[in-house]
Design a binder for these strands. Structure first.
Lengths: 346, 346
DNA sequence: GTGAAAGCGCTAACAG
DNA sequence: CTGTTAGCGCTTTCAC
């Protein structure tokens, strides 16, 4: 047995004031039908007895927890930390709390997070799918329970749930065009797992940009890594080993770009003179490294805010799982830094 | 009214199987007095009806939530993200969930986080104090409610609660000695708010290292910033403006060190040849910048794990707030990178 | 091995 | 304006 602890309840206040518990409850919740005098007395005694409302009891009674569960692949990626920040900003306004679960990019952990959230009776789940998740039934479980679900960034259209993403295709397209404008003639792309929709879209943006600008798409210039510094490094090494190595690289995200830059430095290549580099994500380190890294900003705070807003709007309209499903697409923004600026572009 | 949702309860299962709810509850919790056959039937029907146990109801009944509340200044600082990771690892083992609240370094937000956690009846709170917190009564509120509290990193001895910290004094001492060994003759320190204990201890480590090695402590070589890139930059600028500028800088943490390095680059000073730099925290960006940043590692994962372990051990011994209070001190570890290595030290 | 009954703390009809 | 009553879903004595 846990040691009995002096936890004041609504009953204690009622007894103290010769009132009924329901009156105290109403007073505390500022119910209009309660006299100012009573409210005053209740609030005073509540303070005196160090009363802290029991949210568990009220959640059980009300059938809602005022908690949003957020599933992210990793809190150590600045990107997700920042999205969570955006979510929290909106949630706090609405008096909701945010529970965070890290999947560490693993499907099993993701499943566990979902189960945990469902048991905790969160009022909604916002999630970004783990890289290693290849099936998605665990997300359908959320739908079955009629718990609102909004996906952000790493979404999946087959799930037919609302989602907030940036236009990855456009970001990739523009990043590639930028390299073309810088005078690059052979532009490589270091991509990643193609079962992740956003990585596939970035590849498409890259190839389309080449095609529409009269470039050939060379299979050899496209490498597939797994979104790590190491894979960026080894893919770049492969590219440097070619007869005609590239003079520009668009990396699927910033850590990959960082690895590529390390490989280039080891090979005594100058960035951007010999090879221009642009990444994707606008991770914090990008502006601190030398040369600083050009990249595509993903509107992280905004993505978090939009995800939360989307959730609340749908919640308030009750019909959460109506079709067609809402998809909010944010515009990515290019950030030009030293790693890609061959000439002083105006 | 929230739309009525098909949430299976223990009652539904009981009705289905012509059993009593209590039997079902026991079966689900694998109670010894229940026959294997019944357990089997219950578990089968539970699955069939898509039963998800209601943790809110069980929390209310049991008087505990199996939730640990964690208050951190900011999830965008890698350091804290990493500590949380350590906490989660241990918590998950014990079947506890982790709620995270960001104070954004503000005392008001910190208070709000505490209130929220107390209302949510978390079973314990792990916290790192916000920089802007100058009073600590809000933490005493936790003690009054007899809720276990463990502080990590930014602790405060006056609160007499268990804490897990690294030996900031030793880290600072060793970092300074390292600069002396590198041949630095005039070593500056960019410090920070002195009401934060760890910053004060780092200053002491710095001065003691100088004294014990026969150096003078020069007031002019000690600047006070506020733990930001900008303040690192401006403090460094001031130092460079001196008649005899320093040839080594120990910064109170990595972002400050980064700012100092930017100022040095702007002034065309070579790092480490003209001025050697060492930071504190081992933030992720440190190994990516040029030159890479020497720093003091704070054992983040371990700190998180120790904090959680400390919490669970004290919880299991019931007597949480016994005195004297436990203080776990982790050993910091120096990481030598390019920014401080003037010679190839063996 | 299972059932009956009470209660965790709160809120919301309904009644007056 | 306030009291009475019931119940959210679960666990746990105490029976038998």
């Amino acid at each position: 047995m846990p040691e009995i602890i002096n936890r004041t309840t609504i009953q204690d206040i009622a007894r103290e004031l010769q009132l009924n518990a329901s009156t105290v409850s109403r007073a505390l919740n500022n119910h209009r039908a309660i006299s100012a005098a009573t409210k005053e007395r209740v609030s005073y005694t509540a303070k005196r007895l160090q009363y802290h409302p029991n949210k568990i009891a009220s959640s059980l009674r009300l059938g809602k927890s005022q908690i949003i569960g957020v599933i992210i692949p990793s809190a150590e990626i600045n990107f997700f930390g920042s999205v969570v920040h955006g979510i929290e900003r909106i949630a706090t306004e609405k008096n909701f709390n945010v529970l965070i679960y890290q999947s560490n990019e693993l499907m099993e952990a993701e499943k566990k997070g979902i189960i945990t959230f469902l048991r905790s009776r969160v009022d909604g789940i916002l999630a970004s799918i783990a890289k290693e998740s290849t099936s998605f039934e665990h997300f359908l479980e959320i739908k079955k329970m009629k718990v609102p679900l909004v996906l952000f960034d790493r979404a999946n259209d087959d799930l037919t749930v609302p989602s907030v993403v940036i236009d990855d295709y456009m970001g990739a397209y523009n990043a590639t065009v930028h390299l073309i404008e810088q005078g690059c003639k052979r532009i490589a792309h270091i991509s990643a797992q193609q079962h992740v929709a956003i990585f596939k879209q970035r590849l498409e943006g890259y190839t389309d940009a080449l095609i529409y600008n009269g470039f050939d798409v060379e299979e050899d210039l496209i490498k597939f890594g797994n979104v790590t510094i190491e894979s960026g490094r080894s893919c770049m090494d492969e590219l440097l080993g070619m007869n005609e190595p590239p003079d520009g690289v668009f990396a699927v995200e910033d850590f990959t770009a960082l690895g590529a830059m390390q490989a280039l430095k080891n090979a005594q290549k100058k960035i951007p003179e010999d090879v221009a580099v642009i990444g994707f994500a606008n991770e914090a380190f990008g502006e601190f490294i030398t040369p600083s890294l050009s990249t595509v900003d993903q509107q992280t705070i905004k993505m978090g805010e939009e995800s939360a807003k989307c959730f609340f709007e749908l919640l308030e309209n009750k019909n959460f799982y109506k079709e067609p499903v809402e998809k909010r697409i944010l515009k990515p923004e290019l950030i030009f830094r030293e790693s890609s600026l061959k000439r002083n572009t105006g």
